[in-house]
């Protein structure tokens, strides 16, 4: 049996959970077993979403300490559920929360964990009695792929969103809901959430349709005035490379890349950015990229949709002037 850890979203299942379920179903077919689901909250929405995925049983973790998210309590509760149900494997979405809860559970049971996987399959030629899984995981946010082997009595895996086509399985008439009450003593070694504030959604870097971004080539904090002006003209957001954040030209919240924000705008304008792999993984999902750089051989220039060779201090003001000329 495989367990998928699922979360609800506004309408039914969260996308990452649906993706994890689809992976689990494919894997269960090959292994000749079935898939059950586990959730901490939002049971009614989750249950309705699950029927269409061919999942016949949903374990709902119920405990006062698990109502609010708590890394240690959720991890401990999941560890106990796994001890109770003894599945062959557990799949969850490779979100911050999915990775954290599975790592907490893995630490508690003493099991290995493979995070950020793109695909999971039984290993060929795996020893009888120790059926390993062969998987591919992302390293460095996608700069490299790692083929790996996972051997454990219960295999814990998180899978990246959008890695499998979510397909509806054989619908089941009814999802059997089983309540699981973990034993959570008042462990002193536990963090507690003391405050949660919602953030207002403006034109955020993560969701903007256009992002105008600057790197070392912009030269200074003042150099970003023209980047901001161009972004505003296009109704977009300002981004930057790590050089710009490290030099204090921009706040870290503007940084695009592996340790910044991953974006997928309609258009990404990269000004004076070389296109190091750690920056590239943050912007490669952009529909189109316009690179402006003095070096035509910079990786960003050779990988872009459109390239302009030149000094950003000449090119960007000229673009701004041209937009103003045409729109005034």
């Amino acid at each position: 049996m495989l367990v998928t850890l699922v979360e609800s979203a506004q309408e039914g299942l969260a996308a990452g959970s649906a993706n994890a379920l689809a992976h689990a179903r494919e894997l269960a077919d090959v292994l000749g077993t079935h898939v059950e689901a586990a959730t901490f909250a939002g049971a009614p929405e989750v249950r309705d979403g699950l029927a269409g995925y061919g999942v016949s049983r949903l374990h709902v973790v119920e405990h006062g300490e698990c109502v609010e998210y708590s890394p240690e309590c959720w991890g401990e509760a999941l560890a106990q559920l796994l001890d109770d149900t003894r599945p062959d494997g557990v799949l969850a979405a490779a979100t911050d929360r999915g990775n954290e809860v599975l790592a907490q559970a893995a630490a508690r049971i003493g099991l290995p964990l493979a995070t950020n996987c793109l695909n999971v399959a039984p290993a060929t030629g795996a020893a009888e009695g120790d059926p390993a899984w062969a998987l591919t995981r992302q390293r460095g946010g996608g700069v490299l792929l790692e083929d790996a082997e996972l051997s454990a009595p219960t295999k814990l895996v998180t899978v990246l969103a959008g890695t499998v086509e979510p397909s509806a399985g054989e619908a089941v008439p009814e999802v059997d809901v089983r309540t699981f009450v973990p034993q959570l003593d008042t462990d002193p070694a536990r963090s507690r959430i003391v405050d949660r504030t919602a953030r207002e959604a403006g034109v955020s870097l993560a969701t903007a349709a256009v992002v105008v971004s600057g790197g070392r080539g912009v030269g200074s904090a003042e150099g970003f005035d023209m980047i901001e002006e161009l972004a505003e003209l296009l109704g977009g957001a300002v981004g930057c490379s790590r050089v710009a954040t490290n030099d204090g030209w921009r706040p870290h919240s503007d940084q695009v890349g592996l340790t910044g924000t991953k974006i997928a705008p309609e258009l990404y304008i990269a000004c004076g950015i070389s296109g190091a792999t750690q920056h590239w993984v943050g912007c490669r999902d952009a529909r189109r990229i316009l690179a402006i750089n003095t070096d035509p051989q910079a990786p960003m220039m050779t990988r872009a949709t459109y390239a302009v060779t030149g000094d950003v201090h000449e090119v960007v003001p000229a673009i701004i002037a041209e937009i103003r000329r045409r729109t005034e």
Partner: peptide
């Protein structure tokens, strides 16, 4: 968890259109 092999991610090659200089 045993690392077996590393490889670069497959990447859709983009055709770059040069829009000009300066």
């Amino acid at each position: 968890l045993r690392k077996v092999r590393l490889r670069p991610p497959a990447e859709a090659a983009r055709e770059t259109v040069v829009l000009g200089h300066g």
